[in-house]
């Protein structure tokens, strides 16, 4: 990092638990760092030694392939020793509470724990009980900060800015931590944020988070710079929230007809994994304006940046 970049770097936090509350300066500091990491990741030698000797634990209470492997790769490229722990629901039901698990891991003296949990607030609870840095990799329907940061980085690299862009977040907003984190990051960076969903998949008072609400996707995509699709969980498709996947696809699936309402250079995003033919037409997913693969690439870069940023607050650094 150049001295100038170092001087402007600002991230005075030991944990990354939420995007709500992050300042534009903090977000931009992380994105700047991630830009550099992205360059390193395209070189033959991707290994750095910033986290050499450090131990990173990936603690996943919920199954995840993408986020976990992305953090694993990020940790290894930064030089850390990475351990993956998948705590299945069954072992939790054996009686060990989240706090017990946290205390046990804490005794192993890790430097950073990356946590995903199915309950909102669980990562914050765990962070209160351990001495190391904690990174939220998704807690219930609350937040998924690194996803929102990688989305912002993808947008910034493709469009040169985030401020002033109109972003439509489409799909299951109600159950989505990705949507909540993105709403906070995009608003903080000065974008206009819309949410597009059937009313059954909108959380109560969502407009209070500073978004425009659309229940008609054709209108919601009008003049958008970014179309950000969300994954629809299978268990939500049949009856309780929606009549059928067929009907959902008709009204809320991203196809050519609806995409035409967006700006001609609008980008298509999806956090993955995609349900092709449910929330997104297969051809759209592979569209020339789809940046879905870039999101995956930026995911590793953003996580390297976040690890580096929190590591600055570890003792003996």
């Amino acid at each position: 990092m150049t001295p100038a970049a170092h001087a402007s770097f600002h991230f005075p936090r030991r944990h990354l638990l939420t995007c709500e509350g992050l300042s534009a300066k903090e977000i931009n500091s992380l994105l700047d760092l991630a830009d550099k990491a992205a360059e390193v990741n395209r070189q033959v030698n991707k290994k750095r030694d910033i986290l050499r000797g450090r131990t990173l634990i990936n603690l996943f209470f919920e199954v995840s392939t993408r986020t976990q492997s992305s953090f694993e790769l990020a940790g290894k490229r930064m030089g850390a020793d990475v351990m993956n722990m998948n705590v299945s629901t069954s072992s939790v039901q054996k009686g060990e509470t989240l706090i017990d698990t946290a205390m046990t891991l804490n005794a192993m003296r890790p430097d950073i724990i990356v946590v995903r949990h199915h309950a909102a607030g669980a990562v914050e609870l765990l962070a209160q009980k351990v001495d190391c840095s904690v990174i939220n990799a998704g807690d219930g329907a609350h937040e998924h900060p690194t996803q929102a940061l990688l989305d912002a980085l993808t947008i910034r690299r493709a469009k040169g800015r985030v401020s002033g862009l109109t972003v439509a977040i489409c799909g299951d907003i109600l159950h989505s931590r990705v949507a909540r984190s993105n709403i906070h990051v995009l608003n903080t960076l000065g974008a206009n944020v819309r949410v597009v969903a059937p009313s059954t998949l909108l959380p109560s008072a969502v407009e209070r988070l500073g978004v425009e609400v659309y229940t008609d996707m054709w209108k919601g995509l009008e003049g958008c710079d970014i179309v950000m699709m969300l994954r629809l969980q299978r268990e939500r498709m049949q009856g309780a929230y929606l009549p059928s996947t067929r009907e959902y696809y008709h009204f809320f699936g991203l196809d050519h007809d609806k995409l035409e309402r967006a700006k001609p250079d609008a980008l298509i995003m999806h956090p993955g994994p995609m349900n092709r033919g449910v929330e997104i037409a297969s051809a759209i997913a592979d569209h020339s304006r789809s940046v879905i693969q870039d999101q995956v690439e930026m995911g590793v870069a953003v996580r390297m940046a976040v690890l580096e940023a929190v590591a600055r607050h570890l003792p003996n650094h």
């Binding site: 709500e20 909102a120 607030g121 807690d139 219930g140 329907a141 609350h142 937040e143 931590r177 909540r180 959380p203 109560s204 008072a205 969502v206 209070r208 988070l209």
Partner: peptide, 15 residues
């Protein structure tokens, strides 16, 4: 309780 607070902290709410 459902509403802005529940939406913000990502908890399922009841009206």
């Amino acid at each position: 309780n459902s509403g802005e607070v529940a939406t913000r902290i990502g908890l399922p709410g009841v009206h």
